[in-house]
């Protein structure tokens, strides 16, 4: 097995994820691109598990499992935030969210779009 093949695949997937995070306006698509990046990291961890002879065997695969659990937690919280953003603004475009003027009074009374 040539370890350079999965390593390069992981690097290219990571690049696609970075491109997606920077390019996309829709928050759900940004989350999908983040999933791509997490998968690339997992692939590199699993490949490193086959190339590195560590004292503790299979450390890379255990780390990949941990990253999968973290990704599940991340996507749960991320989607809750996205849905709340949609309820407040009726839009999930990430570049229309104004970070400089935090509307505290607006956040207290959420405008529920029905």
């Amino acid at each position: 097995m040539r370890p350079v093949i999965p390593y390069v695949i992981g690097a290219l997937l990571f690049g696609a994820g970075v491109y997606g995070v920077l390019r996309r306006r829709n928050a759900v698509l940004v989350l999908m691109a983040v999933e791509l990046m997490l998968n690339a990291v997992n692939l590199i961890l699993v490949t490193a598990d086959t190339t590195v002879r560590a004292t503790l065997p299979h450390g890379g695969q255990v780390f990949a499992l941990f990253v999968i659990v973290l990704a599940a937690a991340e996507v749960g919280v991320g989607l809750a935030i996205v849905l709340q953003l949609y309820r407040l603004r009726a839009s999930v475009a990430v570049d229309t969210v104004r970070l400089d003027a935090a509307p505290a009074s607006e956040l207290d009374e959420p405008r529920v779009i029905t």
Binding site: M1, R2, P3, V4, Y7, V8, G10, A11, L12, L13, F14, G15, A16, G17, V18, Y19, G20, L22, R23, D49, T50, T51, P57
Partner: peptide
């Protein structure tokens, strides 16, 4: 996005290709 994403992807790929060349390992 193309500059940063492509740079990150291709840069990491070049780094890995330079580090591992065409070497082979036994699967554990």
């Amino acid at each position: 996005a193309v500059l940063i994403g492509g740079g990150a992807g291709l840069g990491l790929a070049a780094l890995f290709a330079d580090a591992f060349r065409w070497s082979a390992v036994e699967l554990p």
